[in-house]
């Protein structure tokens, strides 16, 4: 499968998370041309702001490796990550620490992007990851716009107002 076809699957995952009231980001971890983990944001569900799609996928890969008796450290180095939005600084750091093979992302992340937009995480780490951006970026961005049109249903009242204000700017 090519990058566009993978991205369609990741976008589908993002759409599902939009319906659950999460920031719509979808992610796939591909190992030997096979999807071994699929994830989306679960920040509201877990009340944990770090539960981004990529971190959920990392947990799934660890389970996959345990079930298939594989060395997770080695598996991670062969994984290609396909994600609808540029990984944030935290997720980019996680992917660097795991020394994954490559990142393909959809739209840039102007708020938190850790590949190029806000802070270049690669400068901190020795590992070099091949990064390709703007694969179906328009579609990925549209999903984010759809989300931010509404307000975050899980934020407390005081934050909702602020968020709305911010997004109108």
């Amino acid at each position: 499968m090519d990058a566009n076809a993978w991205m369609d699957k990741a976008l589908h995952e993002a759409q599902i998370s939009l319906k659950r009231g999460e920031v719509p980001v979808g992610c796939l971890f591909i190992y030997k041309n096979e999807i071994i983990a699929t994830g989306s944001n679960t920040v509201n569900e877990t009340k944990n702001a770090t539960r981004h799609a990529e971190l959920n996928c990392i947990d799934d890969v660890l389970v996959y490796c345990q079930e298939n008796n594989l060395n997770s450290k080695e598996v991670f180095t062969k994984i290609d990550v396909v994600v609808t939005v540029e990984p944030c600084i935290m997720c980019a750091a996680a992917l660097h620490q795991l020394r994954i093979n490559s990142i393909i992302y959809g739209c840039a992340n102007d708020r938190f992007g850790g590949c190029k937009s806000v802070f270049e995480v690669s400068k901190v780490y020795d590992s070099k990851i091949n990064v390709v951006g703007n694969v179906k970026g328009v579609e990925a961005m549209q999903l984010l716009k759809d989300f931010y049109k509404g307000t975050n249903p899980n934020a407390p009242e005081t934050k909702k107002g602020r968020k709305k204000k911010l997004d109108n700017n």
Binding site: T50, I89, A94, G114
Partner: peptide, 13 residues
């Protein structure tokens, strides 16, 4: 903290 932890604490406000 490393970038992972620094940003996790930032996301967590």
């Amino acid at each position: 903290p490393c970038p992972l932890c620094s940003m996790a604490l930032l996301h967590s406000r």
